[in-house]
Design a protein around this nucleic acid. Sequence first.
DNA 1: GACAACCTACCTACTAGTAGGTATGAGTAA
DNA 2: TTACTCATACCTACTAGTAGGTAGGTTGTC
Lengths: 191, 191
Amino acid sequence: MKMDEKIDTKKQILDIAEDLLLDRGYNGFSYKDISGALNIKNASIHYHFPKKTDLGVAIIQRASNRFQKWAGSLDSKDLPSSKKLDEFCLIFKKFVEQKQVCLGGALETDFKTLPEEMQEETRLFMSTVFQWLESFLMAGKKKGELNFPGTAKDQALLTMASLQGAIQIVRVTSPASFDATVKQIKRYVCA
Amino acid sequence: MKMDEKIDTKKQILDIAEDLLLDRGYNGFSYKDISGALNIKNASIHYHFPKKTDLGVAIIQRASNRFQKWAGSLDSKDLPSSKKLDEFCLIFKKFVEQKQVCLGGALETDFKTLPEEMQEETRLFMSTVFQWLESFLMAGKKKGELNFPGTAKDQALLTMASLQGAIQIVRVTSPASFDATVKQIKRYVCA
DNA sequence: GACAACCTACCTACTAGTAGGTATGAGTAA
DNA sequence: TTACTCATACCTACTAGTAGGTAGGTTGTC
């Protein structure tokens, strides 16, 4: 097998495992689900990711890198803060369409059952997102484009909690309830 | 064995199963965890709850009854809306102290792996909570004790999503972040 | 004697994970 | 060119342990 085919399989495993994680939680999928979907054997997954922990850590790290790339790209754009906030909400909106939850929500709910390494990666990932969100909100307020009481940290917590919760609530209501929640957030912060 | 001992075991099973559900999710615990904690055998749990589905449904129904009793009791009290909102947040705060998530959040995250009956019970439970929250907010606004833009339904969605998300976020931050989120919600709605 | 509440003993299916073998291709060396 | 070596990426075949669940027996109480 060629080099690029090897990389491809590893990437496919990650893609499917990430989907399964956001669909059913860390304890809701097994190597069998992945191998079945890719038409390979369980042992092949163990070759790329010896332990399920390794797979879990890889998913979080990849998502973390993806977010940092996304954030860096958005920061360099000259857009009004409300449009940037829309972009942030759009990340979640994409999960809603597939009735998936966000990575943070999935991992936090399963947190107590996660191996230590995954717990640590989850903390790092969430802290990265929170740092970006807080400084984004702070900058927006400074520019007079956003408006909220309290500290940017408080508002970042509320915003993140709302989006994370709203995405889960969609599973017992409808995608429209996510839009309604976003609309309500924006009524508050978009001055 | 006496009647009340039977009832007691069944109640203990429910208590422990509910704790496990809020700790680790529906796929994160097994009959073994319950039987071990109660020093009984797996088969005894199957006597009271033939299928895990039956156990899951019973947990949700009990929580739903508990909430309706709670809501009925609060509605009959003559308290300012902001105090009543505090009481509602206090339900969640109790979970935070044990680093548990709320029932809705746990079930929604595992939703796609739940048996059909549990999915339906989850929808009913959440709809009960939402109905109460919406009419509570509406009444509070009418009395001039609460203040929010948009409809009471929109605000109910935002409030619920925030609390549900905040409780989960505690697992990667600290209990203080829950308090900060609640404070932020109240800055908006408590006129 | 009937029934409730438990038990032992078992089942099948699945879990993550391992040991060891094989096919393929790239790199080197005569 | 051929032949040897090596690593990659997969495989078969297996393990021990756990999952939810069942059949049928025992015990204590009305």
